[in-house]
Amino acid sequence: MRFWILLQRDVLVAWRKKSNIYQPLVFQLLIVTMFPLGLGAGAQTLQKIAPAVVWILALISTLITLENIFKDDYEDGSLALYTLSGMSLPVAVIAKAAAHWLTTGLPVIIFAPVIAVLLHLPASAYGILMLSLLIATPIFSLLGTVGSALIMNLKNGGMLLSVLIMPLLAPVLIFGAGAVLETTLGNTPVGHITLLAGCFVLSLTLAPLAAAAAIKVNLE
């Protein structure tokens, strides 16, 4: 029950500040424009890097939004409000991750085909691109709660957050971008997708505990 209340509030807060929702997308568009400018606009060149670039852009544009998951709540004191409500902390973390996914991950998935078109991704790979992002963006949000909880009372924690969660995201990137690449090469992506799903299960079970532990230490 409290899960839904917190989720609802977070979505509402994000909705009120719509720049939070569209900024990552604008960011993606800006960066993707730079690729043809820097690499040359040859469709073949772009096609080759498309799986990786679409994926890395999705990852980086999520990364820049992670810092504030807990930082805002810590600064305005509403973190105390829900941690002292008797709500289980890992459940609160999952609610925060779910709200973050709805307001960042979901738009990124919906926007991914646009980026893919700009990079001439082969038509056969769109389905797997969407599927891999659908599994992976919740992982970004879940692991993001851990990073965000670790740095929540630092002033400039953004860079540190990237360092902390890059090693966590590396396997996700390997499996996710790999799935899309395999499809463009005409191979089956089943192995990649299965491992990606494994990453999701693992982060769903461990990330809330780790983030809750980090919040507790930070409040001590």
Partner: peptide, 21 residues
């Protein structure tokens, strides 16, 4: 304490990185 937490997360993560890479 926070560094310890990061180290533990890394320890869990290390085999996954190793395997995936």
């Amino acid at each position: 304490r926070l560094a310890a937490l990061v180290a533990i997360i890394g320890l869990i993560n290390l085999p996954i990185i190793r395997y995936s890479v």
